[in-house]
């Protein structure tokens, strides 16, 4: 026999993401999911930019990696609360892992929660975790052709951060190529060029973060 079902397989995942979002809404915090390839500078950017937020802005980070607590250790002086989630072999954070992460945070003492997703340009893009905003990083050494190669990641971004721009000249990086590709995929997300090393562009990124709470 054939059973006609017509049911979204993502219902359970999306429902869990919505539970997370409501829980964070109730706590009055803003959650930003950070997505990129491994090595694009997510952790360093958080290390450098979180201390630039106003002193009244209380921050926390959920860090996803397959193994190790290295990123959490790097961030422990930059955010008030840091929780490492090890996914084992999982290539992305799931809403239920984020739920467990939320369990181990004092949500009432957070204004901005950053989720540092597992470094991967494909799988994390496909899962809503309950975040309010998505920040996608693309570092100069990855090449100026990646927007067109991984369109879904960039299509779902609320802000796009071009990182490690201090290397642009050395690597003959073509920013116009990136902007041209983005003009076909996402014209709504602002693009911020920055370098965690030199500090260039960190202020616009900080201002973008703080503006997300004004809404």
């Amino acid at each position: 026999m054939k059973i006609n079902v017509v049911k979204s397989v993502l219902d359970a995942s999306d429902a869990m993401a919505n539970v997370n979002r409501r829980r964070m809404d109730a706590a009055g915090l803003t959650c930003i999911n950070m997505l990129s390839a491994p090595g694009s500078g997510k952790t360093t950017l958080l290390q450098k930019s979180l201390p630039m937020l106003p002193a009244t802005a209380r921050t926390a980070v959920l860090v996803g990696d397959l193994q190790t607590t290295r990123d959490a250790e790097r961030l422990e002086h930059s955010a008030a609360q840091v929780v490492q989630i090890n996914t084992g072999s999982g290539c992305h954070l799931s809403p239920s892992q984020v739920e467990q992460g939320l369990d181990s945070l004092d949500l009432s003492a957070i204004d901005f929660l950053f989720i540092e997703n597992v470094g991967n340009m494909v799988c994390p893009a496909a899962f809503d975790l309950g975040e309010h905003r998505r920040a996608v990083l693309l570092s100069v050494p990855e090449g100026d052709d990646k927007v067109a190669k991984y369109p879904t990641l960039f299509q779902k971004a609320d802000v796009i951060l071009l990182t490690k721009i201090d290397l642009a000249e050395l690597l003959e990086y073509n920013f116009d190529r990136v902007y041209d590709d983005l003009s076909k995929i996402n014209t709504a997300a602002p693009v911020i060029r920055l370098s965690s090393k030199t500090g260039e562009g960190l202020e616009p990124w900080r201002d973008w973060i703080t503006a997300q709470r004004a809404e």
């Binding site: 026999m1 054939k2 059973i3 006609n4 079902v5 017509v6 049911k7 979204s8 397989v9 993502l10």
Partner: peptide, 13 residues
């Protein structure tokens, strides 16, 4: 989205 459309199975029904 990912939609489960149908399941083909043996059944007592």
């Amino acid at each position: 989205d990912i939609i489960l459309k149908s399941v083909v199975c043996d059944s007592n029904e």
